[in-house]
Design a protein around this nucleic acid. Structure first.
Lengths: 207, 207
DNA sequence: TTGCTAAGGTGAGGATTGTTCATGTTAGAC
DNA sequence: GTCTAACATGAACAATCCTCACCTTAGCAA
C-alpha cells in the first residue's frame, strides 16, 4: 500500500534528521538511519538513490515546511516594509533552526559546501538557496518588488547573506546568538531596501 | 631528513588540491592523494590524522598564502577607506579562487558545511572564517578601526558575508560572475562603513 | 668496519561503509 | 485457486579509511 510507503518515507526522514543532529553528515550512515526508522536497508534504497538523495529529501521537506510557516506568519502579521519583512523571515528561519531536528545541520540543502564538481543536476535541490530564492520571488513581488530580470539574483544574494549570518549565529550558540541574529535582520533589511527600493506600501500612486 | 619530510608534506597538499578540484571533497580518497604525491599511504597518515586533517592542512596553507598576498598588495596600493579596502580584499580573494588549485572547493576550510557536531577542537581550523577574521584584525586596527570588543565579531560577520557572496559568484561561473563579485565588494564595503565608522584617513585630529 | 638504536617509512589487511540484486512476499484481478 | 506485477528484504560485493607489525635508514660509538 502507498499509505505504508508514505509512512516509511516519513520515518526515514525523521530518523535521518535525528542522526544528522547527533553525528553530522559525514558520520551519518544509511544503515543507522534505516535501523532507527525500522525499515530494511534495501527499502531505503528503493525510496532514495543514496545517502545524498536521502538528505536532499529531508532538505526538501524542510523547505516546504519553512515556506508554509512563512506564508501563514505573513498572513497573521502583515509586514510594512523590507525591514520588517527581513525581520519576519529571519525570525521564522531561526525558529526552524531551533525546532526542526536536523535543520541546523542541513538547512535547506547545501550551499555547495564541499561537495564536488558537477554532481548530476537532478530535479531536486542542486543548489538549495537558489530554490529558496525562487520560491520567495512571488512573495517579494506581492510585497511590491519590481519584477525585473535582476530580481531573482538580488533575492539569491539576500538569501545567501541571511543564510550565512544565521548559520554563524548558531555555530557556537546552540540557541542562536541574539546579537548575530539581530545583525542578520539588519543587514538583510538594509540590502533589500537598497536593491529593491523603499516602495513598499503600494497605495495608489498619483499618475 | 626533515628536508624530505617537508617536501613530502608539500607534495601531499599539492596533490590534495588537485584531486579536490577534479572530484570534490566527498570523492577524494587518501589513497589517490598519496598515489599522486608518490608517497606511501602509511606516510600520509604519519603527517595527517586523516582525510579531514589533510584538507585542513591545505586550508591552512591557503590562509597563509592569502594573508601574504593581502599584505603585500596593501603595501603596494594603500587604501583610503573601507570601500576601497573591501574592494582590495575581495579582489585578492577572487584572484586566489582563480589561481590556487583546490581553493575554489576548500576556501579556507569549511564554514561548518555539513560536517557535524562538535569535532574535537584541534589547534587548526575549527572554524576557518573565525581565524581569517582574527588575522585580519590587526590590519583593520591599522586602518583606523576602534579596537573595541565587538571588532572581532564585526569582522567575522564581514568575512562571512564576503565569503558567501564570492562563493556564490563562483558557483556557476568558474571564472566568477563579475556582477556578483562587484556586489560582494559593495555589500562588504557598506557593512564595514556602517559598523566601523568612516573615520578612515587618520590625519591628526584637532583636539 | 661493525654493531646498536631511535626515528622514520611502509603497505597488506581489518573494520566499516555505500550500494546492489537475487530471492521472497504480498495484493489484487480474473 | 492461479497468475502477475509491484513491493520488500538482507546477505554479499566492492571500495573506503585507517592501523600496526614489520622494515629501512641515519648517526654514532667501539
Amino acid at each position: 500500500m502507498q499509505r505504508r510507503s508514505a509512512e516509511r518515507v516519513a520515518r526515514l526522514l525523521d530518523a535521518c534528521a535525528q542522526v544528522l543532529d547527533e553525528v553530522g553528515y559525514d558520520a551519518l550512515t544509511t544503515r543507522e538511519v534505516a535501523r532507527r526508522a525500522e525499515v530494511p536497508i534495501g527499502t531505503l534504497y528503493q525510496f532514495f538513490a543514496g545517502k545524498a538523495a536521502l538528505c536532499r529529501g529531508l532538505a526538501e521537506r524542510n523547505l516546504e515546511a519553512f515556506l508554509g510557516r512563512l506564508g501563514s506568519r505573513l498572513d497573521r502579521d502583515p509586514v510594512s516594509g523590507w525591514q520588517s519583512t527581513a525581520s519576519v523571515v529571519v525570525q521564522e528561519y531561526v525558529a526552524m533552526k531551533r525546532e526542526m531536528p536536523g535543520f541546523a545541520v542541513l538547512d535547506f540543502g547545501d550551499p555547495q559546501p564541499i561537495l564536488g564538481p558537477v554532481e548530476e543536476a537532478g530535479p531536486g535541490l542542486d543548489n538549495a538557496n537558489e530554490l529558496v530564492a525562487d520560491r520567495l520571488r512571488p512573495l517579494a513581488v506581492q510585497l511590491g518588488a519590481q519584477e525585473s530580470g535582476d530580481l531573482a539574483t538580488v533575492l539569491l544574494v539576500a538569501v545567501e547573506i541571511a543564510d550565512s549570518l544565521v548559520r554563524l549565529a548558531f555555530r557556537f550558540d546552540p540557541a542562536g546568538d541574539p546579537w548575530l541574529i539581530a545583525e542578520a535582520q539588519q543587514v538583510l533589511g538594509a540590502y533589500l531596501d537598497s536593491r529593491l527600493g523603499q516602495l513598499m506600501p503600494p497605495t495608489i500612486n498619483t499618475e
